[in-house]
Amino acid sequence: MEKVLDPRFQRLDIFKAQINGPTEKLDQLPTFEVFVLLREAGIYQHEGIVHAPDREMAFLFAKEQFSRRQTCAGIWTIETPNIFVSPYSENKVSIYDAVQASAETGNEPYKIFHMLKRGKQHKYAGKVHANSPEHALQVAKAALDVSKPVLNAWVARESDFFETSEEDKEIWNTLPEKTFREAIDYKGQAKIDAFLAENNKTS
């Protein structure tokens, strides 16, 4: 069976196109880490990555990828290498155990994210002012809630993030109207029951 069924084929004459597969070196785009705020009262959490040429485009892709199906109140994107990653600790041991708390702050605002359980996403823990990522952890130990063991922390300069603004939020206003994306919109039982009742009558 060699008959082509895809209607694009008749239009594009696809088999005649010169196709030799990739010949150039990888055109891999850099990756951006995406943090999403599901609802106003929540906290930002890491949802995954997108590939993009810059952080604005990363936001566009992230909007499609991570706020298409659920409610959304905000997105942050940041290029992967701009995140400083602490070592992972073992359970019940906090990475802050090895950090000297510092009350002395710096000038640069940093965002801190914590992972509290293996397998769970990193969540936004707060903002501190510091002079380096390492210093930011020292300040965080004194300033943020680190009462539960933190298994891993991500630290990044606030200026490296692309953040959605208040006005941007209206792009999510129509999400609740798109009920055709919801399982609950597809009820079939009544039709099956009517069909079975009809069949029982005739047989």
Binding site: L26, Q28, L29, P30, T31, E33, H46, G48, I49, P53, T80, P81, I83, V85, Q121, H122, W154
Partner: peptide, 8 residues
């Protein structure tokens, strides 16, 4: 732009 392995 340079590519690095994503974090998670």
């Amino acid at each position: 732009a340079h590519y690095v392995t994503p974090l998670a």
